[in-house]
Design a binder for these strands. Structure first.
Lengths: 267, 267
DNA sequence: GAGTGGTCTAGACCACCTT
DNA sequence: AGGTGGTCTAGACCACTCT
C-alpha cells in the first residue's frame, strides 16, 4: 500500500502560491495592482473570503502591500538594514540610493519621574534628571518602514530638540556633541504591528514586525540612548555581524562577499 | 466640533484584548486550556469565525499556542536566546534550566556539485569537495522551537556524522576538532513558517518566525559553517550585543544589567 | 464517538479610496 | 458614485484529537 501522507492543500494556499508564482515570473511586475478580491474569487471559482485569505498570506509575507480601500500591489524588494553598523538607518538608506525620511511624532523634554523607572536606570539617571523623548516615523522613498521611540539624557545633549530631527540623530550626536555608539545591548522580538501604529503608518494592522529595545553606550561606557524601535518585517531584510570591526579594515571585503553568498543561498 | 478620529474597534480585536487581559491578570494561567471557538462565540455573542480570528491574533502574538484538533492553551513565557553568544542554543537552554532536545531530520554527506553554488562559495570549497548536511529540529522542554539546516566542510570535520548529533554541534566542533566560532555574518528575515516545516514541527502554519542565514568563521578567518535557521517568533525572545567581548571581562556585569533594564522597559 | 480546529461558502453592511 | 477592502454572519463538511 502506498503511503498516503499527502495532506490536501487548502484552496487559499493554492491561490496564494499561484499569485506568488505570477509575481516571481514577472507576470505581475513590481508596484502593479493585482486583481480585486471579488475578481480573484470569480477567476478561481472560490468565495471572496477565501481569495482574501490568500492575499493576506502574501501581504504578511511581504510579497504584496495594501492600504485599506485600495487594491493590493506587488511590493518592492525588501530594504537592507545592517543592525551592527554604527551608521544609522538614515545613512544606510542614503548609501543604498534610497531617499530617507522622518516625521517627528513627538519631541519633548521630560523629567525622569514621568518615565518608566527602567528607562532612567538604563541611562544611569536620577529622578531629577531630564531626558529628551523623541518619536519618529521613518520612511524610505516615502514609504513608512519603522517607528523609533528614543530617549536621550538632556545632560549629554543640551538643546537637542533645536536640531533638525528629520535627519540622522546619530549624525547630530556625532557632529555637535562628539558622541558615537561604541557598544550596545539589545533585545529583539518578533511581534505584530499594533492598531495604533498601523493607523499612524497607514499600513495593515498585525503586520509582522521586528521590535528592538536597545541601550547604546559611548566608547567610555556611558549609556546615551534608550531606544524602542519597530521595523516592518515585510519591508526590511536585516543583516548583522558578530565580532570583527564593522565595515573597515581587511574584514570589509570578506564581509561583503559573505553577505553576497548568503542572499538566496538556500531555497 | 469635537474631532471624531475614534475608529470603531472590530469585535474580533475586542475579544482578543479581553482574552489577553484575562491571561495577564492570571485568570487564565500558563498552559491552561481556553474555551473552544464555539464556546467563545456563544459567550461573546459572535460567530465562530469571529472568535477564531481573535484566537489567531493571540496565537501569532505568542500568548496562546495550539495544535490542530485540540483547544488552544496559554503559552509559556518566551525563551531567551542570545544571538551574539559563542554558546549555541543547546548550552544557553541548559544554563536557563530548560531541557534542550534535537531530532535529526537529515544527516548526509554530499558533494558540492549537488548543492546550491552559493553554499560552497561561502565555505570556500571546490566542486569536488564534500560537505555534511545536517537538518535538526530543536526543542525546549519537548516543545519544538526551531529548525536548523547546516552545512559543514568534510575536510575540516572528518566523520562528523558519527557523533551524537542530538547534542551541541558547536560543542563537538570545539571538543574534537578545536574549532570555535570567532566571527559570523548573518542575514535576519521575518518570515512565515511554511506548511512543510509547520507539519514537521506540529505547529500552525504561517506562524511568524525569525529566519537566519549565517556563515561562521574560525579565529583564523576560515569559514566552517553555512547555516539556515528558522526560529519560532512566538516562542523566543532574542538578545544581542554589538562590539565588546561577549560574556567575559568587565563587560559581563554591564551586559546583564543593561538587559534587565531593557525587558519590559517600555509598554 | 463526541468534540475541536481547519476550511469554505454566499451572502451582508460599512468605511474608505478612487474617479 | 462606484469600487474596494474590512468586518461579520450562520451555516456546512472534513480531519484530527481526546477519552
Amino acid at each position: 500500500m502506498p503511503e498516503d501522507d499527502a495532506v490536501p492543500i487548502p484552496r487559499y494556499r493554492q491561490v496564494a502560491e499561484q499569485l506568488a508564482k505570477e509575481i516571481a515570473e514577472g507576470a505581475l511586475p513590481t508596484e502593479a495592482r493585482i486583481a480585486s478580491e471579488r475578481e480573484l474569487a470569480e477567476r478561481f471559482g472560490i468565495s471572496r473570503m477565501t481569495a482574501r485569505a490568500a492575499i493576506n498570506i502574501l501581504v504578511r509575507r511581504g510579497l504584496l502591500s495594501r492600504r485599506s480601500g485600495a487594491r493590493a500591489y506587488v511590493a518592492r524588494p525588501k530594504i537592507r538594514f545592517d543592525l551592527s553598523s554604527p551608521e544609522g538607518l538614515y545613512r544606510q538608506l542614503e548609501h543604498a540610493g534610497i531617499k530617507p525620511g522622518a516625521k517627528v511624532i513627538t519631541a519633548e523634554k521630560l523629567p525622569c519621574e514621568a518615565l518608566e523607572p527602567k528607562i532612567c536606570q538604563a541611562l544611569a539617571l536620577d529622578d531629577l534628571d531630564e531626558v529628551f523623548h523623541i518619536v519618529r516615523l521613518r520612511t524610505a522613498d516615502k514609504e513608512p518602514i519603522a517607528v523609533e521611540d528614543s530617549y536621550f539624557p538632556e545632560r549629554l545633549f543640551p538643546d537637542l530638540l533645536d536640531f533638525h530631527l528629520t535627519e540622522s540623530i546619530y549624525g547630530i550626536l556625532k557632529k555637535y556633541f562628539g558622541v558615537a555608539p561604541a557598544k550596545s545591548v539589545q533585545e529583539l522580538e518578533i511581534s505584530l504591528l499594533d492598531a495604533e501604529w498601523a493607523h499612524i503608518m497607514g499600513v495593515p494592522v498585525d503586520l509582522p514586525t521586528l521590535e528592538i529595545r536597545r541601550v547604546a553606550f559611548t566608547e567610555q561606557g556611558v549609556p546615551f540612548e534608550f531606544a524602542h524601535d519597530i521595523y516592518r518585517g515585510d519591508r526590511i531584510l536585516f543583516t548583522a555581524r558578530t565580532a570583527g570591526t564593522p565595515g573597515q579594515g581587511e574584514d570589509a571585503v570578506l564581509w561583503q562577499q559573505a553577505l553576497d553568498n548568503l542572499h538566496n543561498g538556500l531555497a
